[in-house]
């Protein structure tokens, strides 16, 4: 009998919130080896294998089908692969880990209040400075799609994997696209979000992989697990997986 592989965040606040949410659903996750162990179990569902991974790794492995079900953010799914969102089913939002992917630019840009302003600024910048307006971000796919929807073509992405909010001050980029939960980091760096600058409202989700190998056994385990969260959720998700 094949066993369902569930991946949950391996550390920090996300791990704790995930374990709390599962416990509330009657699915207490045990991590017998403590924080250094990468395997866990659920007593109520002994056939399910639990693995502890980083949230972005979970996103990648859901897309490639190496794990069946996982807890991760929609932002990370989008970022792992351009069309990654098509390879998964978002089964259930878990009401924690809320964060927005936003466009943020210097407070001193008093002429920019909306994305349409940014379209003009990008165009002007290239004509005036002979170079592209630079956007620092780790959200390359989301940024390209959002900017393109707003008809902004005159910019370049500078990939940034940490402390993105410092990019304007360090001169690495003119503006940023970053994730924020309270906005305090942006405020501390004198950055503001244009009125239509929220690209994605993300939160932790239970996500199932469409590309995983779904045997009848595993489908049954998935249904049983999801029904703990809400009765009927299992059926709905399985039919979406095979649609």
């Amino acid at each position: 009998m094949s066993s369902l592989l569930l991946a949950v965040p391996s550390k920090g606040r996300l791990e704790q919130d995930t374990r709390d949410a599962f416990e509330k659903a009657g699915l207490k996750i045990d991590r017998p080896g403590g924080a250094r162990s990468y395997l866990g179990t659920i007593e109520a569902l002994p056939e399910v294998t639990v693995r502890f991974l980083s949230a972005s790794e979970i996103a990648r492995e859901l897309i490639s089908g190496k794990i069946d079900l996982g807890v991760t953010g929609e932002d990370l799914i989008h970022e792992a692969a351009e069309t990654g969102i098509n390879q998964v089913v978002i089964a259930k939002p878990l009401n924690f880990g809320q964060a927005d992917v936003v466009v943020a630019l210097p407070n001193s840009w008093i002429d920019v209040t909306a994305m349409r302003d940014l379209a003009d600024v990008a165009s002007d910048f290239r004509h005036r400075h002979g170079q592209w307006l630079r956007v620092a971000t780790k959200y390359v796919n989301l940024t390209r799609r959002y900017f393109s929807t707003h008809g902004i073509a005159e910019y370049r992405i500078v990939e940034s994997l940490g402390a993105t909010e410092a990019a304007p001050a360090s001169g690495a980029a003119e503006l940023i696209v970053d994730i924020t939960s309270s906005g305090s980091t942006l405020r501390a760096n004198e950055l503001k979000v244009p009125e239509d600058g929220v690209i994605l409202k993300s939160e932790a989700n239970l996500v199932a992989s469409k590309t995983a190998n779904w045997s009848e056994d595993k489908k049954a385990q998935l249904q049983a697990l999801l029904d703990h969260f809400r009765s009927g959720l299992g059926d709905a998700t399985v039919s979406e997986l095979t649609a």
């Binding site: 210097p106 001193s108 008093i110 002007d124 304007p168 004198e190």
Partner: peptide
């Protein structure tokens, strides 16, 4: 002054005059 407070360079990126002109 806003730019200085945020640590933005007065010599690269969008300049104060440029921002005011567009405003």
């Amino acid at each position: 002054a806003d730019m200085e407070a945020a640590g933005l360079s007065p010599y690269s990126g969008r300049q104060a005059e440029e921002i005011v002109a567009r405003y």
